[in-house]
Amino acid sequence: MPVLPKYMKLNLDRRIIFILMAIAVIFPLVFKLGLPNKVTPEVKNLFGQMESLNDTSVVLISFDFEASSFPEVQPLANAILMHCFSNNLKVIGISLLAEGTALGEKVLKENAAKYNKVYGKDYVFLGFRPQVTATILALGEDFHKVFPEDYYGGSTADLELTKNIKNYKDISLIISVTDGDIPFSWINYAVARYNKDLAVLATAVMATSFYPFLNSGQIKGLVNGLKGAAEYEILLKKPGMGARGMDAQSMAHLLIVLLVILGNIGYWMERRKK
């Protein structure tokens, strides 16, 4: 019987795996690999839809994520905001999760500053409202009743961008940047009841849940995790956090596959031995 080398035994110390994973993630972040990425049709569709909007179009971006997933969601939010601001679209930011409020405001302001956008005219941030269902439904009835003030306490009836917004009819596209299941509520209430166009930018772990809605046409575009962000950056011709993160993710995925293969070789050799 062959004697199994130590690395093929099932009890490979997990600390070795952790060190390998750390190297697989850190190395591509330090030394850029520049792996080629292919743009998927769902991302292309959303990009095309965004391109079809003009400078009078108002986009409602809902920052529906929490701090835990910020590293994955931030490139998604950056990509869509860069597209909005480079095409001179008007942006209204809100959040349906309390934690998304500060983070959403930060991302929105950073991107607006890059394009010299004016607060109140080109973009506004309205902050957080509790109770997802009631907020989404109420926005379809009376926008100013849900958000009488913006995040900073200014009246939305006075801000140039929001003073003429009555309900979803005055909004061209809703975009939910999310790490959870809030897009289900957007689909159930804003899309089904008010027939509004919705796009979803979700973490990879959640994105698979939304493919049936993309296929049925209930959502107009889906950007799937870090890979989706990298694809969007390709279309924008502005490689950023998404592209850099994809190299690290590629190496991490490769390591996982290698570990699975190694584990199975060890498993089969032990089985033969028995």
């Binding site: 099932l10 490979l12 997990r14 795996i17 952790f18 390998l20 994973m21 750390a22 993630v25 929490e66 701090a67 835990s68 997933s69 910020f70 590293p71 991490a252 390591l255 996982i256 570990l259 699975v260 190694l262 584990g263 199975n264």
Partner: peptide, 20 residues
């Protein structure tokens, strides 16, 4: 919170090696 979420990468790798 980001650290907690990032730890998943390490645990997934270890779990994949042992369980897959």
């Amino acid at each position: 919170q980001s650290t907690m979420f990032s730890l998943l990468a390490f645990f997934v790798a270890s779990a994949a090696y042992r369980g897959f």
